[in-house]
Design a binder for these strands. Structure first.
Lengths: 252, 252
DNA sequence: CGTAGGCTTGAAAAGCGTCAATAGGAGTGG
DNA sequence: CCACTCCTATTGACGCTTTTCAAGCCTACG
């Protein structure tokens, strides 16, 4: 257990929670005063598995992770992608039995916080509680968009949409430079996220590349040539991310 | 504006919120003391539309409703189905701009509550706030399962899964009798919920019927012959609904 | 170098969509 | 009570998107 200090890792959490509500100085101090432990998890490792009893909530300090669920046939579906600043596993730890797994895409540093401390904080400081509730609501909004993405869009649109979402969220998290980024997922994982096979993901990405919508110096390095055009192909409207005006604009 | 009384419509909300946390007498009174208006909305009517500024949250007192989003091609995707006791539009009204529409499947009675009163209650009575937060978390869990359903399951499994979910939720809401129920959706709406076309929904349902997994006296009247078998076909595990033990068991 | 994981590509099959036509039931107005 | 209309369910034929299976290739890493 560390104590909050000037450069606490929990500053990341403060940043995330301040995003949608105005937190006063005491609120911020209370967040920074949360007990936590920092843990590094390697690629492929799980923070929690489906059906387990989750005992820890966490904030991602660096790296990328996904939440996923398995189906009877053995395939899996990724239901969300997470990066720096995201609260993960609140869902599982507050609801007792995990309904999904949380797995690292890359090596991740995570600040683990006991769930009961989070509940306590939410009770004692209503604005912090509200911030976390809103964060959960936005989480839900992103899930809804994903249902739409896999339910009613063709492969080309799905992939373009995912690339747009990832790009914009990187920017909001302060990780993006221009429209270039390193996609931390294999094409099989992209398939798991879009409800496609890796083979079809490959063909679709190459098609997007041939159309000039994206460029790739290597398979994972995505460069978005014309953001607006890709957003149009991907039927992408950032509304569902519920970003505030003070956050980076969409155009870029 | 009515005042809370012995048989307030808001008892429905108390029932829902008591489901996952223990609320004391004062918590219950505070919920019943919320200002509200009761409104009847006809079939097909909207409580709120995508992109609108939502100003009212509601609890369904009777009837059925769906949340949906439209895609560029004009098709739509239903992202959840709601019934008595469900809180709808908290998402939209707390997040300012609506990211989805809420539409009635049947005539609905809804108790409308000003969102700011809900926020106030959540701040003043932390356990009520926690109950609503948990409700939002469960909402998210159901969305995750729907992503999996449309993303990684074939038509037969998807439909069987939806029929199981609906049946179980009816039972939990106190609306189900045995394994018979009236499905308040057209086959086109079922298609919108499962990411299929109405034509394929029709064929799939008829196939399920031929297999003896369900019986139908008329197109909407579903009778589940063998719950366990349908759940197996539908890859259905009720875990994601996060029901408490004191709620009706799955087998039936 | 040698192995493993990820990427790429081709050919064929399958599942689901599209188009189109028919039928039944509920409500409406004459 | 009948004619009419609209909405929903049903079914067939055909086509297309995506999957499946399979093979080869590249690159990182031990």
């Amino acid at each position: 257990m560390n104590r909050a200090d000037r450069h606490s890792p929990l500053e990341t959490l403060v940043r995330t929670l301040s995003c949608r509500v105005d937190l006063d100085k005491d609120d911020r101090s209370a967040i920074l005063a949360l007990p936590f432990t920092t843990k590094t998890l390697e690629r492929h490792h799980y923070l929690v598995r489906e059906h387990d009893i989750a005992t820890r909530s966490g904030v991602i300090l660096s790296g990328y992770a996904v939440r996923s669920k398995a189906v009877a046939s053995g395939e899996r579906q990724i239901v969300s992608i997470h990066m720096k600043g995201d609260l993960i596993d609140l869902q599982n730890s507050l609801l007792e039995k995990s309904d999904h797994s949380v797995q690292m895409l890359t090596t991740c540093e995570i600040a683990l916080i006991p769930p009961e401390e989070i509940l306590k904080l939410a009770s004692e400081r209503p604005m912090v509680g509200r911030a976390m509730w809103l964060e959960t609501l936005v989480d839900g909004s992103v899930f809804r968009e994903w249902i739409v993405n896999v339910g009613r869009r063709d492969a080309r649109t799905r992939i373009a949409h995912l690339l747009c979402e990832f790009s914009l969220r990187l920017k909001v998290a302060g990780l993006g430079k221009d429209s270039n980024y390193e996609l931390p997922m294999t094409q099989e994982q992209l398939g798991d996220a879009t409800g496609l096979t890796s083979v079809h993901v490959n063909r679709t990405i190459k098609a997007l590349e041939r159309e000039g919508l994206i460029e790739r110096s290597d398979p994972r390095a995505i460069h978005i040539g014309d953001w607006r055009k890709l957003a149009e192909v991907g039927d992408f409207d950032s509304n569902y991310l519920h970003l505030r005006e003070n956050e980076p604009a969409l155009a870029g």
